Simulated assay, not measured.
Amino acid sequence: MRDAVAAASLALCAGTCAQAADKPPIVVGAVSSLSGPGASSASVQAARAYFDTVNAAGGIQGRRIDYTVVDDQMRPDVARQGAAALIDDVRVVALAGGSSVLECGVNHARYAQARLFNLPGAGVDPACFASSHIAPMNAGPYVSTANALTFVHQVLQRARICVVSPALPGMTDAFTQAVNDWSRRMKAATPSLDVYRLEDALPAVVQRVAARQCQAVVYTGPEGPSLAWMRESHPALAGIPVVLLTASYTSHTARRLSDLATTEAIYAMAEFDPWSSSSMQTTDWRRLLVASQIEPSSLSQGGYIAARALVQVMRGMEGPITRASVADTLERTTLWSGGMMAHPLRVAADGRHALNRSALPMRLIDGKWRVAHHGWITD
């Protein structure tokens, strides 16, 4: 497969790569959590794969894209240093495709000051969704928690809902607010919220949650802790539907939990089109992942969308591609419409972005994720 992709790339490149080599590259950066608990490289892998296809076709305005990714190691000081290096590099026109647990909170003010836009494939911490120069492709854990609660309340028709959340840096208060805001909007009983540290012994947490006699559980953690929770929560919570967030909508989770799914109702909230979709964008993403040997996941969808959106913006520019011109274009352009999301996404000059706020419930059946509800749920 890789040989075929290489041959196709050479064919596309003929007559244009020499020109691209003579011009300075367009530098795009990312600060992403590639190591540490809950870290993942899927988003930046997919973004890099998309940029590679653009380069293989001659780049943009005859310039190749140089994708520079910084691993923040889930440490604020490293995230700060990595962002500073990208900000200080005047060649960096934008950031795209990152997926960091904490870097938005650390760096958002400096991105605004430098007028450097960041389009994460997956935003995680609260500042990702409330910053003038950060516009994630995903709906994020707080909106998805609210959408999961709506799915449980309105579709599964369960009244007594328990939310379980590992205590990740800077996220506990945001989950508490998301749960309380949902309860007020829906005029529903406030779900219980059990927060635990990742180093806590899970059996005690499971027993505490089981004592609440939940009719359904929404688990808000990343994929690794989600898998651990699903294993440890049985048999104490057997027979109770569990809704995971989009980080668990992966083929890896499907394989690991396929045995449990034969007797239990396991759901995940997909923030982008399901992999079974026949849309042109999803088909192109799937083909790119197969060629690049990247596992399907919502994170890889987000990275792909971020890279494609930025390329679309830059391809529409007639003048020089610089940090300032990219910022100007982003602020006056509809960023993405029809890109595996329920609604168009827009970056606003005043920071009032129109971000992704939708999710589609999926259920694990026979080792595969299947659409569990006919329509998108939007917070």
Rank of each mutant, 00 (worst) to 15 (best):
Q154R: 14
S258M: 06
R197N: 08
S278I: 06
A211D: 07
T220Y: 11
R158H: 14
F175P: 00
T172G: 01
L245Y: 13
Q207E: 15
D273P: 01
C214N: 11
V217R: 08
L227N: 14
L257H: 02
W275A: 09
H252V: 11
P169S: 09
E199W: 09
I161P: 01
T190P: 01
G170L: 05
A211L: 03
Y267I: 12
I266M: 11
Y219D: 00
A270Q: 12
R160K: 14
S183N: 01
R212C: 02
T176V: 08
A236H: 11
W229F: 14
R185G: 11
A270N: 13
A261I: 07
R255E: 14
Y219G: 00
A167W: 00
W182N: 04
Q207L: 13
Y267P: 06
C214K: 12
V217H: 09
E264F: 00
R256Q: 15
S226Y: 11
L193M: 13
V152S: 03
A204E: 10
G221M: 08
A228Q: 15
P235W: 07
A216D: 13
P191R: 03
L156E: 06
S278A: 14
L257G: 01
Q157I: 13
A159P: 00
P241C: 01
A159C: 01
H252C: 00
S233D: 01
V218S: 03
I240G: 02
R231V: 15
L260R: 04
A254T: 08
L257F: 04
R158L: 13
C214D: 11
W229P: 02
I266F: 12
S251W: 06
Y196V: 12
V195R: 11
S248D: 09
R185T: 15
T172P: 00
T250H: 06
V155I: 09
L156K: 10
L168P: 00
V163H: 04
A247I: 01
T262D: 06
A201Q: 07
A204I: 01
Q157T: 15
T176P: 00
